[in-house]
Design a protein around this nucleic acid. Structure first.
Length: 583
DNA sequence: GCCGTTTTCGGCCCGACTGTTTTCAGTCG
């Protein structure tokens, strides 16, 4: 049973209890526990063995007993009983916009509705409007909501979301009356996947700006329209929300809209403890005096702490850290000066080595490494020994052309084969400047097998970096079922760097494991894995993973000067020569 | 059900918007 599966069980309990009408704080407790289990870096089975379940935030006596029951018996009597009381198919009804626990309970108890299909039928026949508190408009809203739910678009990937968002930000900034426009929500926190887009605007003419916003030419439907807040659905099905406050309240608004919800709840609890009340409009002290916050830092300062960077605002300890004045130092988005994994036309890239090098130089990088695929990845036209030798000549030629400000290394993205062997023999590997070893095939092997494959790569002294370690593909394909305790320990023991692959559909290591790796002092490497020259800037997304994972910049080898990287590689080379892998 | 710089009991975040109501409940972020 994985952390994810346990978290889902508690989420389900929370939903069912809410419909049942249990006191709200009990359901909140289950939801909070689910969220912190989802964010755990360590395997919950291990925490159980070590008797540390109650150290998980939000997990007390009752919930840890339930976790133990699930882990030891594979089921939970409490949930089974609950499912007999409240039909679990009602949870789907909760997914419909404007339907929450109270209405779901009303539909179920008063009209016998237990699933989405029955809800739709009741709305179509006009049965819903007969219920107390319901009317014609509510009925129509629910029908629309069901349609929206059924055609809902998947969460967008971060890269695509920023593209769309930048277009909207440009437009918003051109609207008369807009003094400032910024992205809020999960986008501003650089979360790997984004649901809706959130924007915040400062303006002294909110009505006028809102009017322009909801009449934008791409709007399909207006979901809500007020003075401070409006929400629209585009023809593309993307939903956008806009908040507006005057400039003197903009800091509070931006802080509020950036979230996360959990961060804000925790922050408000803290505010309350020290005698303040916090909202998107400002802060009130105990006497009811308003403290206006024009910038976000004012909000945090009033509450007795330094400004917390948005990427940290997930309620994963950042508020306590801020209060203790020990927020982590985060990687500067401009701090990457090398990129050690990119492709070229020599395998499946679309740009020549020269084009990649020129773009890298233009971007201000000091060092790049061309890592085309090794032979066995046939679909990517992987290189063999002979073509690698030819490629070395080409790299030397390009190096001459681009000059000394950019150093070009020759590496390889080495295939870890299904049986755990590496695609190239050691003699070939030792001639390369750098080796990135990656899994691309047979990712669904059982945990022991696939962990063993990766272990063999980590233990090979010629391997410097493990590329996109889990192999996940967002938003759909989960990563391999790795035993992370073993993998991370091996990486630490062998001084191998783990890649944070910047491709928006990978972002792998993910932030959970990157944070754990950082705590263990493991080296990491943020690479573009670019397949064309114009993809080099995507390292910004890899940087966001490192920031969200609290990674100390010193552990990120792309922040090192060339000499330090070359010395690190050199040391590994010496180690490799002194070790006989078979002995 | 959880939790403690006021607490081991008694609290537990805040405001905007909508629709159905004549003052508020429900939902959402």
């Amino acid at each position: 049973m994985t952390n994810q599966e346990i978290a889902e069980i508690f989420e389900k309990i929370a939903n069912l209890l809410e419909i049942k009408g249990e006191v709200i704080y009990k359901t909140l407790a289950y939801r909070r526990a689910a969220e912190s289990i989802r964010n755990l870096a360590e395997d919950i089975n291990k925490l159980h063995q070590e008797n540390k379940l109650s150290e998980i935030p939000g997990v007390g006596k009752a919930i840890s007993e339930k976790i133990i029951e699930i882990l030891t018996t594979g089921k939970l009597e409490f949930l089974e009983k609950l499912e007999k009381e409240v039909p679990p198919s009602l949870i789907e009804v909760l997914q419909v916009p404007d339907v929450g626990p109270k209405k779901a309970a009303l539909f179920w108890r008063e009209a016998g509705i237990t699933n989405l299909m029955e809800l739709e039928r009741a709305a179509n026949t006009g049965e819903l409007r007969q219920l107390p508190g319901m009317g014609e408009k509510s009925e129509k809203r629910i029908l629309d909501g069901i349609k929206m739910y059924q055609r809902r678009s998947d969460r967008m990937l971060l890269g695509q979301a920023w593209q769309v968002a930048n277009t909207w930000l440009d437009w918003l900034r051109s609207v008369p009356g807009v003094l400032r426009a910024e992205a809020g929500g999960s986008l501003n926190r650089w979360k790997p996947t984004i649901g809706d887009l959130d924007f915040v605007v400062s303006s002294n003419n909110p009505l006028e700006v809102m009017e322009t916003f909801v009449n934008h030419k791409e709007v399909n439907r207006i979901l809500s329209h007020g003075e401070n807040k409006s929400s629209i659905e585009l023809q593309s099905r993307t939903q956008i929300q806009l908040w507006i406050q005057p400039p003197e309240r903009f800091g509070s608004l931006w802080q509020y809209s950036t979230g996360s919800k959990e961060h804000n709840v925790h922050l408000r609890e803290h505010a309350q403890r020290i005698g303040y009340s916090l909202s998107e409009r400002g802060i009130q002290d105990a006497q009811g005096n308003e403290i206006l916050c024009a910038v976000e830092a004012d909000v945090y300062q009033t509450l007795g702490m330094p400004w917390i960077p948005p990427e940290l605002r997930e309620d994963r300890g950042e508020i306590q850290a801020a209060l203790n004045r020990c927020l982590p130092i985060l990687l500067d988005p401009k701090g990457l000066i090398s990129d050690l994994h990119m492709h070229s036309t020599w395998s499946d890239g679309r740009s020549s080595i020269e084009e990649m090098a020129l773009a890298a130089k233009q971007k201000g990088l000091n060092l790049i490494c061309i890592c085309d695929h090794s032979a066995s990845l046939g679909i990517a036209r992987g290189l063999n020994k002979e073509r690698l030798a030819e490629q070395r000549l080409e790299i030397d030629r390009v190096q001459q052309n681009v000059g000394k400000s950019l150093q070009i290394l020759q590496g390889v993205e080495l295939e870890i084969l299904a049986d755990g062997k590496l695609d190239f023999p050691d003699e070939l590997l030792q001639d390369l400047d750098l080796v990135v070893a990656s899994l691309h095939t047979s990712l669904r092997q059982p945990r022991e097998t696939i962990t063993g494959r990766l272990l063999m790569a980590i233990r090979n002294p010629h391997v410097d970096i493990i590329g996109h370690p889990s192999g996940r593909l967002l938003p759909t394909r989960e990563g391999a079922d790795l035993d992370w305790d073993i993998i991370l320990q091996a990486a630490a023991d062998h001084g191998v760097a783990l890649e944070i692959n910047s491709d928006p559909s990978r972002l792998d290591l993910d932030e959970i494991h990157a944070r754990r790796a950082a705590e263990m002092g493991i080296l990491m490497c943020i690479n573009s894995d670019a397949h064309s020259f114009d993809a080099l800037p995507i390292t910004r997304f890899g940087i966001s993973v490192a920031r969200r994972a609290w990674v100390n910049p010193e552990l990120v080898i792309n922040t090192w000067p060339n000499e330090k990287i070359l010395a690190w590689l050199g040391n590994r080379q010496v180690m490799a020569e002194s070790i006989h892998p078979e002995s």
